[in-house]
Nucleic acid binder design. Structure first.
Length: 820
RNA sequence: GCCCGGGUGGUGGAACGGUCUACACGGGGGCCUUAAACGCCCUGCCCGAAAGGGUGUGAGGGUUCGAAUCCCUCCCCGGGCACCA
């Protein structure tokens, strides 16, 4: 492995020097009273897991390039960094190693911070925050109280994943495959009282506002699908011989005359009552038990829809439209948590119902005309209604309207909208998270902790149970509290908040990070927000980004945030993953490649440059370290050329030559190219252009009589300027040595578009679309001249063989195509 | 199953409908050196000693003077969603 770029360039010393300079001088510290226009550049803050990995390098390099580039373009760029420092991994490590999670976490933050600095990424460190510290989480608690006050935080019974061995609930992500992440015990469903945020109140807004975002289309699509708005009707279906009705939701009321049976979710509240005392009771109860044991994860994921399991209750439903009696089934393909937990089933017009009907040998009624040649038994497209009484002859859409009207007139149904989005369950039965500021009083009930009493501090003197049960549950001093309302003895909530709550507002805190009286001031937030560029992994496309959007809106509505800003992230960039051998790098796979070794062997600039050069940052890339050498070699070359232009060839002080004109043209073209590429996020081609220009310099200066020193100097200055955001250390050092001063305080260079155009171009001569000749011509050549030149070409004459061309296509100044 | 992305040299990747493979990595060769490292230059698939020619962007069609690029059919890879009525 080569030791750095070589001759006269001491990578380690130079990089350390400039990193210290940026820190000490506070180059990237910004404030409200700075008159430059504001720009907020943010990378998703990391979970402090210890040493950084290549994904971090990619992320923070991109963020840093944006920050430095924007700054050179005259903006004051807010670029902060912090730590998503609550969470399960540190707590698990604590249980295993007997060290407090806070200790482990703070050590890891120190390591990570040092490595991020070593990368040369610059931040306004005065704004650093860590969400596990009381000066941050007291405001998370404050926001919880505000949401609670506004009715947006509530407690309710909910089915959760429960690990019987660890005695705790688990997040869905921690119970993948239906087994506990820690002990591999199968997870059960339990109903527990849990805290929720009422994100569903914002379902419509969250959906509508997606349109206004400059985000990757696929992320927007994922958000829309996750919200899953669907319009339909809810109506009551009578049960034969009983007073109760079953409410069902459907988006296809036009198919109601095809209703073949009704299905209830096994958890439906009416089930027990329906079968009580009937011959079916025993069998149905057994079925319900069986389904309950299957976790929701198994029911909803696996490889595609599971085989439809169901059972006849023996009860009959009555179709209100025609009085038809149909059987009532229970089936696990109907979810208790969506719509009303009950459906009307129409096998002729719904794939799932069809599948179920086949298994249970039920009749199929078609209610929509099939298109010519349609052979499938199910049809879900548009058409004309048939077998449908007063719908007959209507289109599907008209029948939907008529059906809804019919129900509304009789008072048994109405149009409704359903969402896939559920309220956000934020309770975690874990220690290492933000305590929920609530106490339970025997006489006053659930009482919020007064704002003046915040923070509710996580006690440090805790003993971690090998079982994983939260030590808060057995911590007397924490548990016992006085009721804020009546002063009598009360008990504290021991659940902590999902760490996604912490990350739902950290970008707001960055705007006003040291405020001791409020989570942030609305004015400061208004000054910086929305984030002008947010950069992070695609894996957060739904959860974090949805929650943060919800918070931004909620915070405005409870009177804390600026009213006009309802979306936190105006622009989002999702970077691709760094793979190793085709799969994601991870500790467990043992295929981590540490960035730290490259700091020592090649330096931060080379590593940054290589990451940017690998390919477009949206794409996943397989890691290969061969190219770091190449980046390093290029930087060494740049160093030699900039320090000693004679390296390039003959440097003279005399009149302008062709070489001078070519070099000047080249540098205008370079600046144009890099400027365009920065807008397109195609740093790979920007770097290629810089390399190409450097190669061209050698060519021009070595040919004929050499180039002027002044021309070269100007070219090298521009080369350094365009590379400055990407390779900040070497360009800063060279700039300082060549001209004095700080390159990152220079303006982004301008270019003259006319000068960037080449004088001479290669004209391609084709015969029948195949290249037959190349001729150097002036860029301003006329069509006629081109045609003449092309026809005069020996190659063309040969092909014509004395005849006349059928057609000649001329595209000035690049191409002539002769068709024979 | 549905919805997105992608398939271009040995590799990463370039390419407003107009020279396919820029820029790199790796390989081969040469120069420099006492030698090596560094550096510099050439090369890049097939035929040919060369000049030159040919094939050629996952497959097959189409549009066009001209297609990696636009249209249709299909195959393969990656990702997301997955019983939401």
């Amino acid at each position: 492995m080569p030791e750095g770029p070589g001759k006269g360039y001491d990578v380690q010393t130079v990089e350390a020097k400039w990193q210290a300079y940026w820190d000490e001088k506070g180059t990237y510290e910004v404030d409200e009273d700075d008159p430059r226009p504001a720009f907020y550049d943010l990378c998703m803050y990391p979970y402090p897991s210890g040493p950084i990995h290549m994904g971090h390098v990619r992320n923070y390099t991109l963020g840093d390039v944006i920050c430095r580039h924007r700054t050179m373009n005259g903006y004051k760029v807010l670029s902060p960094m912090g730590w998503d420092s609550f969470g399960l991994p540190a707590e698990n490590a604590a249980i295993k190693e007997g060290v407090h999670p806070g200790v482990i976490t703070r050590q890891r933050i120190a390591v990570m911070k040092e490595q991020i600095r070593r990368l040369g990424a610059v931040y306004d460190w005065r704004r650093e925050l860590s969400c596990c510290e009381p000066d941050y989480y007291r405001w998370t608690q404050f926001l919880f109280l505000k949401l609670h006050e506004a009715g947006l935080a509530y407690k309710a019974m909910a089915p959760v994943n429960w690990c019987p061995s660890c005695q705790t609930t688990l997040a869905n992500e921690q119970a993948e495959g239906g087994r506990c992440e820690r002990c591999d015990t199968p997870v059960e469903k339990r109903d527990l009282e849990q805290w929720f945020f009422k994100i569903t109140d914002y379902a419509d807004q969250l959906l509508d506002d997606v349109d206004s975002l400059e985000w990757p289309e696929r992320v927007k699509t994922m958000q829309r699908n996750w919200i899953g708005r669907s319009e339909g009707v809810e109506f009551a279906i009578g049960v034969k011989g009983r007073a109760e009705t079953i409410r069902v939701f459907t988006t296809r009321i036009d198919t109601v005359f095809g209703m073949t049976y009704v299905v209830l979710a096994p958890e439906h509240p009416l089930v027990a009552d329906l079968v009580k005392g009937t011959a079916r009771e025993k069998e149905v109860t057994a079925f319900v038990e069986r389904v309950r044991k299957t976790s929701e994860i198994d029911r909803m994921s696996a490889e595609g829809p599971l085989e439809k399991r169901g059972i006849d209750t023996g009860a009959k439903a009555i179709n209100p439209f025609n009085g038809a009696e149909v059987p009532i089934y229970l089936a696990d393909y109907v979810l208790a948590t969506y719509g009303t937990g009950a459906i009307m089933a129409v096998p002729g017009e719904d794939e799932r119902d069809y599948e179920f009907a086949m298994v249970n040998e039920l009749a199929i009624i078609k209610t929509t005309e099939r298109p010519e040649g349609w052979t499938e038994p199910i049809y879900t497209g548009p058409g004309t209604k048939i077998n449908s009484d007063f719908f007959n002859g209507m289109t599907v859409d008209d029948a939907k309207r008529a059906g809804t009207e019919w129900l509304v007139e009789r008072g048994i149904g109405e149009a409704t909208v359903n969402f896939r989005l559920r309220d956000w369950l934020i309770s975690r039965q874990r220690y290492w998270g933000c305590p929920i500021p609530i106490v339970y009083c025997p006489s006053c009930g659930t009482v919020p902790v007064p704002e003046a009493d915040l923070p509710v501090v996580l006690p440090e003197d805790v003993e971690f149970q090998p079982s994983g049960e939260s030590p808060l549950k057995s911590h007397e001093a924490f548990l016992n509290a006085d009721c804020p309302r009546c002063g009598k003895g009360a008990v504290r909530e021991t659940d902590t908040m999902d760490t996604f709550v912490d990350s739902s507002w950290y970008f707001l805190r960055f705007c006003d990070a040291t405020n001791e009286n409020a989570p942030f001031s609305a004015d400061k937030v208004a000054h910086w927000m929305p984030v002008g560029q947010y950069i992070g992994g695609i894996e957060h496309a739904i959860l974090h980004l949805m929650y943060a959007r919800f918070f931004m809106k909620a915070v405005a509505d409870v009177g804390l945030g600026p009213k006009g800003i309802r979306e936190p992230f105006a622009n989002l960039f999702t970077q691709g993953m760094i793979l190793e051998g085709g799969s994601k790098m991870s500790k467990s796979k043992g295929n981590l490649v540490s960035p730290a070794q490259y700091f020592a062997s090649h330096g931060a600039d080379a590593l940054r440059l290589f990451h940017l050069f690998m390919g477009p940052p949206t794409e996943d890339v397989d890691w290969s370290d061969r190219g770091v050498d190449g980046a390093s070699r290029y930087l060494a070359r740049l160093w030699r050329v900039a320090i000693t232009p004679e390296e390039l060839g003959t440097v003279v002080d005399r009149d302008e030559s062709d070489a001078d004109r070519l070099i000047t043209r080249g540098r205008h073209a370079l600046v144009k190219k890099v400027t365009d590429d920065f807008d397109r996020w195609t740093y790979n081609t920007a770097i290629a252009a810089a390399m190409e220009f450097t190669n061209d310099l050698y060519r021009y200066v070595q040919s004929d009589e050499g180039a002027r020193r002044a021309t070269l100097s100007d070219a090298i200055d521009h080369l350094l300027l365009v590379l400055a955001p990407m390779a900040p250390h070497i360009t800063a050092e060279l700039w300082d040595r060549r001209r004095g001063g700080h390159i990152h305080e220079e303006s982004w260079p301008a270019f003259d578009a006319a000068l960037a155009q080449a004088e001479l171009v290669t004209m391609i001569v084709q015969v029948n679309g195949k290249v037959r000749d190349r001729i150097e011509v002036a860029a301003e050549i006329s069509e006629d001249e081109m045609r003449e030149l092309a026809m005069a070409s020996a190659k063309v004459q040969e092909s014509l063989d004395g005849g006349d061309p059928r057609k000649v296509i001329v595209v000035p100044p690049k191409l002539v195509n002769v068709v024979v």
